[in-house]
Each structure stands twice: as structure tokens, then as C-alpha cells.
Amino acid sequence: MVVSSFSKDDIFEMLSEIPDPEIPVVSIQEMGMLRDVVMTDEGCEVIITPTYSGCPAMGLIAQDIKMTLEMKGVPSVSVKLVDSPAWATDWMTDAAKKKLKDYGIAPPLHSSCNKGNFSDNVILCPLCNSDNTSIVTRFGATACKALYRCEDCNEPFEYFKCH
């Protein structure tokens, strides 16, 4: 039996640098995808949760986790995907939302905005903060984003849909 010389905090620290493959300015931890680390006799098990059902990045994230930890010498890493409780954009940290905005992506509103007719929601332009924006299409380059346009600064921008 190999006793791991790493603590749970060490592992979290190492994982904190793994970026979201589709939005590299935020980490998987800031996105709320990294749920837990369970230390085992042989190494550790990292528990992650998918964002959107069909998010194609989950496989890549699992691979990144294994590679990162193995390169730091953590033996026997396994990654487990759990669905419960379901991820929501409210799990994103405020720091992550700020990073998204600085990157040019309007961060998600609180998920309660799903309750009504979401076309009524006002999305602020991440570039000039204007509320005079309009939706171009509900679908963007990834499943989690919609495309908007600012009517004041005329810039198109992406909105991270609340989920």
C-alpha cells in the first residue's frame, strides 16, 4: 500500500490551475465543476460535475485533471462524474463572473431568470456596460452561450446563458 504524501488541500491547489477548455480565463474550480477530492489509499479520486448535459468538454477536463496530477507525482488518479446535485450557473464564483466579463463574455444572470420569459431579461454589454442590448441568436459557439449585440457601442458579444 502506497500512502499518498499529498493532502486534499494540495490536490485542490494543483487542480485550481486547470482552465475551462472552452473559456480559458476561468478555471474549472471557479466554474463550479470541481466538486470534491477524495483521498484513497492509492491516490485520489477527483469528483467533477458536468455543466450542460451535452458539454463535449467533460472528457477533455477529466484528461487534464489526470495529466496535471500525474505530472505533479500524484499516483493513481481517477475522475468520477456525478450529476447530483445538478450544476447551475449560480455555482460560478463572483471572481469567475468578473473574469468572464473582462474577457468580453456577459456573465450569467441569477438562475431565477429562467422562471419567466427569458427574452425579457436585460443583459449588460460587457464592454461599455450599456443596457441597450439586443439578442442576435439564442445559440452561440458553445452550448452555454448566446449571441448579443450592444446598440450603443455596436459591438457583438457573447452571453453565458444562465442554467
Partner: peptide, 12 residues
């Protein structure tokens, strides 16, 4: 598990 899958699905 079904409840968690449902929570995601209902929004989609």
C-alpha cells in the same frame, strides 16, 4: 440520480 438529471434537463 434521476432527480439530478431532471434538474439539468428541465432547463434545456
Amino acid at each position: 440520480t434521476l432527480a439530478a438529471i431532471a434538474a439539468k434537463t428541465v432547463k434545456e
